[in-house]
Design a protein around this nucleic acid. Structure first.
Length: 825
DNA sequence: ACCGCCGGGTGCC
DNA sequence: ACCGCCGGGTGCC
């Protein structure tokens, strides 16, 4: 199973089969059994301690053998053979998840009882009961009285309101929330506290969740999660203090003056990192042990880092920074460990870990590991997650704007990365936190909150310290401007709508909605495009809804087109296997789009008769079609510049607003945002005609061009552009466009979060003016319906925490409902 | 006694 | 294991 040489792969074995459904598992019942052979093993348990049951098919005495392990993974004994004979089949076929608790008998020498709970999908219940019955066992109803309650003890909350007063000269530079963050971080780096849910009890360390105890003191993580939707804010200038301390340490105060001056420049978020790294320099001087800090980030922010390091560190200190990226990267672990900072991306990390089996990054013991945009690793099955979890180094920090997106599930990878015992093992995480929370067990949420509180610093824009908002941003207003189409535009719109509605109605009555998912998205896309400009959908009219008899080439082309359609439709498609946004999209013959690795895993595990996870059609690796070219997804209809330019109602409304704005304030800058880059191109025309200086930022631009466009736009020089044409999803979270105080959103997005994120690019620290956002919405159109869906999504997101993540089929059902609402069915 | 009963040896899977 | 189970020793009252 494990093809990655030499590196422990801790989750492959428990991620197939039942894993996907652990959230929807029901409790079949409980059964008392016995653990035997205690005297042969070293693993010990306490009364009421949780134990894990593990199949041991290779046991020479009994192929049905089931091992019993304690929380530490040490074997306690075996399940008695008659019972094991009944359990083996259930476990091997993943019909149920069997969990054990040893109720008493902790001091028994030979055998002890074990209370087992059987969990699984409703449809497997009968088979499990049957199998047990055949061996003469019968499940008892679930135990009453919630054991979780009595186990749970709230932790004292860390005092995060305490501020750290830095050196006098520095303290004045810090805002209260910065001092607070600093104090927290310093305390995390220096604390000797036990990790959450551990207590010291008469020479033993005792875990209050699992009732596991051991002599050895469990390590608390040196580090934590900085969860901050204004991450860019809270850490700003934090570096000053770090650097200050370190300088005092290093230079004894001598070089401090010059240094401080340098740092009174505008300082950005990324300073945090080199703050940490300066510390690593200090550690290097102060003794042996690892001295290199590894920073992993998405590719999109890599250059930001490099810039920051170049600007600040190189000149001031002789800090060795190595960017571990590109095919010529050094493969020498000892070279890497000599660096002060090694910078790399999640992709490189994952590639090295997976392909080479001797990843240099995994051979180094790091002083500190920092995961930037740490939510990147929220999918426990993703290669980059496994790669990150297996990095070696005791100080571990996760920086993320969105640690808990939709579910508790997403948190596991982060907690596991922090190496908090016993949560690194998925089973214990699931039994003690995830299930109690998702099933609403009393105390479950409290437990989770306790955990989060003790290891994360979470601040939102709305957080307050001592009754005052942490951050006072200028006001932000969202206006909706309704647009009425011209008679001509309306005619085209209605005719396309009529045709599309007829087709979609047919799909509904035939029950083939899922099979025509891409076509339906296509109809909706065309309608949305027509709301913007009639020319946007000129080339996407191939409404061949039936596959018919086609040559392989034609099928291939059709699939590629469908995939492009899905990807460019802006509907924020998720892969139904991993439920993440698509990476390396491929399309099946039945026209459903998945991540390449995900669908290959499905094919591999279900072979020889793999079925499409969405529609159960036949699925074959050789039929999968990949997306031909990354980037220029909707460029297919871009090649018509020779045509005469015409305006549209929306463009007229925009130009009217822009000209008015310029008249009132010639220096005011604004963002013009659309999901359709072709639309942005169409807007360029009237901008030129009306003499606007503008710039443009979209996903297809090379990194260098982007940086240029951003700098140009942010400049306050006379004659600098006042308009930026921005594609909705361009740029990462870090994109800073605070020069703009107006936003024109040309077309609504499916996902309101995407819009909000876009607005945040100018409504953030550094914004001096109030921000006015104008959304253009065409009356009586698909756009108005999209607003309703957005509203629903917002409400859903507001109560999101603790609700479980929807399954693939639920996602599709939601989408079908959306489709109905969108086209008035 | 092709039984019962006794008591020693023994012990996970 | 202060059990169960095994198999050898033994055998009226």
């Amino acid at each position: 199973r494990n093809t990655y040489l030499g590196l422990e792969d801790f989750s492959v074995s428990d991620t197939s089969g039942t894993e996907e459904d652990t959230d929807s598992a029901v409790l079949y019942g409980t059964l008392r059994g016995s653990v035997v052979g205690l005297r042969y093993y070293t693993g010990i348990v306490n009364n009421n301690e949780m134990v894990a049951l593990q199949r041991e098919p290779s046991n020479p005495y009994d192929k049905n053998a089931v091992k019993v392990n304690n929380v530490n993974g040490d074997q306690v004994g075996h399940i008695k053979k008659e019972l094991a004979a009944a359990l083996a089949g259930i476990m091997d076929n993943k019909l149920a998840l069997i969990e054990g608790v040893v109720p008493y008998g902790a001091k028994n020498a030979f055998t002890m009882p074990v209370q087992m709970s059987f969990w699984g999908r409703e449809e497997n219940k009968e088979a499990v009961l049957d199998q047990l019955k055949r061996h003469g066992f019968k499940l008892a109803p679930p135990l009453k009285g919630n054991e979780f309650d009595k186990l749970f003890e709230d932790l004292k909350e860390d005092d995060k309101t305490c501020e750290l007063e830095g050196a006098e000269a520095v303290a004045t530079l810090l805002l209260p929330h910065q001092k607070q963050a600093l104090a927290w971080m310093v305390s995390r780096e220096n604390s000797n506290d036990l990790p959450p849910f551990w207590e010291e009890r008469s020479n033993f360390y005792y875990n209050t969740l699992t009732n596991f105890a051991e002599k050895q003191r469990p390590k608390n993580v040196i580090g934590g999660i900085l969860a901050d939707d204004m991450g860019l804010v809270i850490l700003t200038e934090l570096v000053l203090v770090f650097v200050w301390f370190c300088l005092v340490f290093l230079l004894g105060g001598g070089g401090v003056k010059k240094f401080r001056k340098d740092f009174q420049r505008t300082i950005s978020f990324f300073n945090f990192y080199f703050a940490l790294n300066i510390q690593s320099v200090e550690t290097k001087y102060s003794g042996d042990g690892p001295s290199a800090t590894l920073i992993v980030c998405p590719l999109s922010v890599l250059s930001n880092w490099i810039d920051q390091f170049e600007q600040h560190i190189h000149q001031n200190f002789h800090v060795n920074i190595y960017v571990y990226y590109g095919s010529d990267r050094s493969r020498d672990p000892s070279f890497l460990s000599e660096q002060d900072i090694v910078l790399t991306t999640y992709n490189i990390l994952a590639t090295d870990y997976g392909m080479r089996g001797d990843s240099p990054l995994h051979k180094v013991t790091w002083l500190r590991i920092v995961l930037d945009e740490g939510h990147t690793i929220r999918n426990p099955n993703a290669q980059q997650t496994k790669a990150a979890l297996n990095l070696d180094g005791h100080r571990r920090w996760v920086l993320t704007g969105t640690p808990i997106q939709n579910s508790v599930k997403d948190l596991w990878s982060l907690i596991s990365f922090l190496k908090l015992k016993p949560f690194t093992d998925r089973e214990w995480w699931h039994r003690t936190i995830q299930r109690p929370v998702t099933m609403g067990a009393p105390g479950g949420l409290g437990r989770l909150q306790s955990l989060i509180r003790s290891i994360t610093l979470r601040r939102t824009k709305k957080s307050k310290i001592k009754g005052k908002p942490v951050l006072e941003l200028p006001e932000r207003k969202v206006l909706i401007q309704h647009i009425t189409l011209t008679e001509e535009e309306r005619q085209i719109y209605q005719s396309v709508k009529k045709e599309g509605k007829a087709a979609i109605s047919r799909f509904f009555s035939e029950g083939t909605v899922l099979a025509h998912y891409a076509d339906i998205l296509g109809v909706l896309l065309r309608l949305r495009q027509l709301c913007c400009h009639p020319r946007l959908c000129i080339n996407t009219s191939s409404s061949s809804f039936s596959a018919g008899d086609k040559t392989p080439e034609e099928v291939h082309e059709m699939l590629v087109n469908k995939m492009k359609l899905v990807l460019s439709s802006g509907s924020d498609e998720e892969c139904a296997v991993c439920l993440e946004s698509l990476t390396v999209p491929v399309i099946t013959r039945c026209a459903h789009v998945f991540c390449r690795p995900c669908i290959f895993e499905v094919i591999r595990s279900e072979q020889p008769n793999a079925k499409c996870p969405l529609c159960r059609s036949e699925l074959r690796a050789e039929h999968l079609v990949e997306c031909p070219l990354e980037g220029e997804i909707d460029s297919s209809n871009e090649k018509k510049s020779d045509q005469e330019w015409i305006s549209s109602s929306k463009i007229n409304a925009l130009m009217h607003a822009l000209i008015e704005l310029r008249r009132d304030d010639p220096t005011a800058k604004c963002l013009v945002v659309s999901q359709f880059t072709t639309f942005l191109s169409l807007i360029e025309n009237p901008l030129k005609e009306s003499g606007f200086a503008f710039t443009r930022l979209d996903g297809s631009m090379a990194q260098k061009k982007r940086v240029e466009a951003i700098q140009c736009f942010q400049s306050s020089q006379a004659g600098s552009p006042t308009v930026m044409l921005l594609s909705l999803k361009a740029g990462g979270v870090g994109l800073n466009l605070t020069a703009a105080s107006r936003v024109f959103l040309m077309d609504p997005a499916w996902n309101p979060a995407a819009e909000d994120q876009c607005f945040d690019r100018c409504h953030r620290l550094g914004q001096k003016h109030s921000v006015v956002i104008t959304k253009f919405i065409v009356k009586d159109s698909v756009e108005e319906n999209m607003l309703k869906i957005q509203k629903k999504k917002r409400e859903l997101a507001a109560g999101a925490f603790a609700t479980k993540k929807p399954s693939a089929s639920e996602i599709k059902q939601t989408k079908i409902n959306e489709i109905k609402a969108l086209i008035d069915l």
